[in-house]
Design a protein around this nucleic acid. Sequence first.
DNA 1: CATGAATGAGGTTTCATTCAT
DNA 2: TATGAATGAAACCTCATTCAT
Lengths: 214, 214, 214, 214
Amino acid sequence: MKKAARKSIRSRKTPVQSRSSATVEAILEATIQVLMTAGAERLTTTLIAARAGVSVGTLYQYFPNKQSVLHAVLEKHLTKVVEALERACSEGRNQPVAVMAEGIVDAFVTAKLERADASVALYAVSANAEANALMQRLRRRSLRALVGALGTAPDASFEEVAGTAEMMYAAMAGATRAVLEGGATPKMVRSLREQLVVLCGAYLAAAGRATSQG
Amino acid sequence: MKKAARKSIRSRKTPVQSRSSATVEAILEATIQVLMTAGAERLTTTLIAARAGVSVGTLYQYFPNKQSVLHAVLEKHLTKVVEALERACSEGRNQPVAVMAEGIVDAFVTAKLERADASVALYAVSANAEANALMQRLRRRSLRALVGALGTAPDASFEEVAGTAEMMYAAMAGATRAVLEGGATPKMVRSLREQLVVLCGAYLAAAGRATSQG
Amino acid sequence: MKKAARKSIRSRKTPVQSRSSATVEAILEATIQVLMTAGAERLTTTLIAARAGVSVGTLYQYFPNKQSVLHAVLEKHLTKVVEALERACSEGRNQPVAVMAEGIVDAFVTAKLERADASVALYAVSANAEANALMQRLRRRSLRALVGALGTAPDASFEEVAGTAEMMYAAMAGATRAVLEGGATPKMVRSLREQLVVLCGAYLAAAGRATSQG
Amino acid sequence: MKKAARKSIRSRKTPVQSRSSATVEAILEATIQVLMTAGAERLTTTLIAARAGVSVGTLYQYFPNKQSVLHAVLEKHLTKVVEALERACSEGRNQPVAVMAEGIVDAFVTAKLERADASVALYAVSANAEANALMQRLRRRSLRALVGALGTAPDASFEEVAGTAEMMYAAMAGATRAVLEGGATPKMVRSLREQLVVLCGAYLAAAGRATSQG
DNA sequence: CATGAATGAGGTTTCATTCAT
DNA sequence: TATGAATGAAACCTCATTCAT
């Protein structure tokens, strides 16, 4: 008789010791590996543990349930992207929108492509309420950075920065996903980056034109 | 016997009789209903059948396995969108890119939002190889229509129409998904359509500028 | 990912068909068999199903979880005892306490010993809140019957019938359990019945003496 | 390695050092605490150790396995009751049965109620062969004391002292358990003691009447 | 002696699929 | 054709026990 008491979705124990954090790291990496080789529907905790070189019991010592492992993997991965985007926004402040667009798109695409394999694998497990909430949270964080940067552009003034930022983010994320899930060839990847710069540049110019300086 | 030998994923029989097609229809609709009310992980064949008012046995009379039911639902839903897009492309031929962009974006967004609930629900089951293949197929079909239309624009000439079409499609699909999965309020929806027109219009103008006629 | 949604502890479907009720019956009987041969800690649903000649899946078609199987077995068994006691109380009405005591004790002991093996086996699974609640419920039902009967005794008047009934019931149940768990030899069993008649007879006489008729 | 080879169920080492015996004591007490707060099915060695303020490893330093911890707790608890009963029997020698009954019942009930919480908690882990053997052993010891005392009663002569003692013991233990498991209110407890005195007194009088002195 | 991370067998439960009626 | 009871493989998760530090 097993009673699955509702527990926190966060890791069961904070990995302070190097041993622990190494184990956690191995589990997170193994999850991506299994996701890529076996697919989302064959992703079992036993398989993850085996791939990580530990026992299932150990996995459950660090994560309360399977869902939380996926959550952690997703969070780690997405956080890197958000941070890259935040850095780019920070560096792009007070630059013309064209420069800004280029810097931000580049940072976003580079971060996503850094681990293109993981990105694709993770799309497969991001289709659930839990993951959605996480993505929304990080999306809002990204939007704050974008809005902050857009507001400093000397050559544009946006009627509705929030909406503009949202659309730009959606276009970047959506296009990148489409390319990755379609199976990204180097040519497509190069094309993605360039086209995305054109797209975002044009969009920001158009959206910020209203009061832009002649 | 859980894992059936891989059979054709297409429907076992083409539903020509009205009786059969009504049943198939009920099953497809029930699938969406269950998906929306119970979620992807509680989507069972028994539940689908019950909701459709038939028995599991009957479900398996028309579909070789669960996967094929999802495939059929997804195909039906996505096909509608593609057809709307094709119609818009057809109607937009020989129109200036701005007009074209508006027509295509409007058609796409309208089709997606027609059954926004279903769209969101289906995202949850589209994260697998099978579904991916289907989506790629329909995506290519959409791209053909887009490329065809873009080529007829009198006020623009694209260096790389294929790439331009891909990017435009990715932006539309990605942005729409982002809005829908984020929980679409009417305001966001309106904003989506307008912003997407601006974005696509600006992008097509920029991408087609090189040799655009003065 | 298994979500054990809280369900009713009662049987999942009411077994109306003969086939179903036969299966349910087989499962209940198998539970007792396994309990006797393997003990409470080796009582697994798989073992129960195997012993009943069905698959685990079938077991879970009729019972929402392991606990509910035990609940059903216990309820069935205890209900028989209560009913026997109720019958005896009914038949003992308006009889002198000595006659009453003999009839009730006899009925109780006979019912318990009818399936002495099952009784012993079930003690092992009755040590939990769920089972406790069930036992309390049936105990109260027994007490109502006892109180009703005691009130009609022509040769006794009880100051506190409720308390007297409780004590009598506790003595009968406790003594029977002690004998059964100690391993009942025929001699002990005979002794139990006789001694229990003496004990209950003496107790009722003593407790009802206050206003008993000369 | 879950199923250890059967080892001695007694404590691994006799705790002679004060340090050790304090640890053992803490573990035994913690077991009762966990049993009361978490219940028998959530009683884990890790939880016991944590509650006792030691590590699991330490627990296994003093007890060969989980079962032996429960055994020790049960033994300690039941032994106190037996000793109280033996004292009462000793003090009741050569007294009339009524006096004897009162003394013995009082001692038994007082001892059981001293740690009513623990008593209830322990019922939950006493349903297994191991515990049964222990209880039988202590029961026989109690019976010896009872038989010894009953034989000295000046106003009664029992045909079958052994049987009479058994029945009296069963009635006391059974009734007490029924009250405790039913959830003992102070009123019920008081009632228990009084009623039990009446019951045992009446029973001993009845059973010893045959050759009792006018 | 104490610690507590690691182990992994095994228990419970689900659900896609079949097939006798 | 429709039904739905039966199947059983396989997933998740627990926890008694060990042993390197």
